Simulated scan of single mutants.
Amino acid sequence: MTEPSENTRPATLGLLLAGGLARRMGGGDKPLRTIAGRTILAHVIERLAPQCDGLLINANGDPARFADYGLPVAGDSVPDFAGPLAGILAGLDWLAQNRPGVDWMVSVAADTPFIPHDLVARLHAARLAAGVPLACVASGGWTHPVIGLWPVSLREALRHALTVEDERKIDRWTARHGVASAEWAAEPVDPFFNANRPEDLAEAERLHVLLGTA
């Protein structure tokens, strides 16, 4: 099967998940920490924007703190910081209401500054090859279910799981519907490295140099 290219893949919105509590980072907005003089969020946007038909930030609280990026911000509709699935539902709801001609959304953790340039095309290729509606990424033998591809058609099923069943585990929910995995090499740099703790920022600086993007 021919893999979708940037020009042939379905229209896809990019969702930047920035709604976490960042406890291991000491609170605040992890994506607004800096690497090589720019915020992590700026690095993610630079890599993801060319692959998508628009970007959306999922974050709770005052959206004004993201005003410099000129992107719409959608907060969770499910209360009490219900986790990434709530952010994904918020993105799918925004997409259905604001971009009715776009049927797909890719979610990316907003603290992953090295996401690959072929992320969206390879996720679409993976779900087409497997004949399933969902796809997520893997690297170094580990899956990363937060970074994945979602159809708008499953948003009501997701809402039911969150609000009626109190489901919080991404991989448990995706397994119900069928999820493919797209694998990347983890060397020399894991493209899905994320900055969870203060010491990860120093490692991110080192990896940034290693990639030759300093």
Score class of each variant (00 low, 15 high):
residue 203 E to G: 07
residue 177 H to R: 03
residue 158 L to G: 01
residue 170 I to T: 12
residue 187 E to Q: 15
residue 186 A to N: 13
residue 193 F to H: 04
residue 147 I to Q: 15
residue 180 A to G: 01
residue 160 H to R: 06
residue 160 H to S: 10
residue 189 V to E: 14
residue 183 E to V: 11
residue 187 E to G: 03
residue 191 P to V: 00
residue 203 E to Y: 14
residue 164 V to R: 10
residue 148 G to I: 07
residue 190 D to Q: 04
residue 166 D to R: 10
residue 188 P to T: 06
residue 153 S to T: 07
residue 203 E to M: 15
residue 203 E to R: 14
residue 150 W to A: 01
residue 157 A to Y: 00
residue 192 F to R: 10
residue 152 V to H: 10
residue 183 E to N: 01
residue 180 A to K: 03
residue 150 W to F: 01
residue 148 G to A: 10
residue 195 A to T: 14
residue 145 P to N: 15
residue 185 A to Y: 13
residue 178 G to E: 02
residue 154 L to Q: 05
residue 146 V to T: 14
residue 148 G to Y: 12
residue 203 E to V: 15
residue 158 L to D: 04
residue 172 R to D: 06
residue 190 D to I: 06
residue 179 V to M: 11
residue 161 A to W: 03
residue 187 E to C: 08
residue 158 L to M: 07
residue 145 P to A: 12
residue 184 W to D: 08
residue 154 L to I: 00
residue 172 R to A: 08
residue 185 A to M: 10
residue 174 T to I: 02
residue 201 L to C: 09
residue 149 L to H: 05
residue 186 A to L: 12
residue 187 E to S: 14
residue 146 V to S: 14
residue 177 H to F: 04
residue 176 R to K: 00
residue 181 S to F: 09
residue 198 P to H: 08
residue 174 T to N: 06
residue 188 P to H: 07
residue 159 R to E: 11
residue 164 V to E: 04
residue 181 S to R: 11
residue 168 R to K: 03
residue 162 L to P: 03
residue 190 D to G: 04
residue 198 P to K: 12
residue 180 A to L: 01
residue 201 L to Q: 12
residue 155 R to G: 01
residue 193 F to I: 12
residue 181 S to D: 11
residue 166 D to P: 01
residue 182 A to N: 12
residue 166 D to C: 02
residue 162 L to V: 00
residue 195 A to V: 15
residue 191 P to E: 11
residue 184 W to S: 04
residue 202 A to N: 11
residue 157 A to R: 13
residue 157 A to W: 00
residue 195 A to I: 14
residue 180 A to E: 04
residue 163 T to I: 11
residue 156 E to K: 06
residue 185 A to N: 15
residue 186 A to W: 13
residue 174 T to A: 06
residue 184 W to H: 05
residue 181 S to T: 13
residue 152 V to N: 07
residue 156 E to M: 14
residue 162 L to H: 02
residue 189 V to H: 08
residue 202 A to V: 13
residue 194 N to I: 09
residue 202 A to K: 13
residue 147 I to P: 13
residue 180 A to Y: 04
residue 184 W to M: 07
residue 150 W to S: 00
residue 195 A to C: 15
residue 186 A to Y: 13
residue 171 D to F: 05
residue 190 D to A: 13
residue 177 H to V: 01
residue 187 E to P: 09
residue 159 R to Y: 10
residue 167 E to G: 03
residue 170 I to S: 01
residue 185 A to F: 14
residue 166 D to G: 02
residue 202 A to Q: 13
residue 195 A to N: 13
residue 192 F to L: 15
residue 148 G to W: 09
residue 178 G to C: 10
residue 162 L to C: 05
residue 163 T to Y: 00
residue 170 I to H: 08
residue 170 I to C: 07
residue 148 G to L: 09
residue 168 R to V: 08
residue 153 S to D: 10
residue 152 V to A: 14
residue 154 L to M: 07
residue 162 L to S: 05
residue 176 R to H: 00
residue 176 R to Y: 01
residue 175 A to Y: 02
residue 198 P to T: 02
residue 176 R to G: 02
residue 156 E to Y: 12
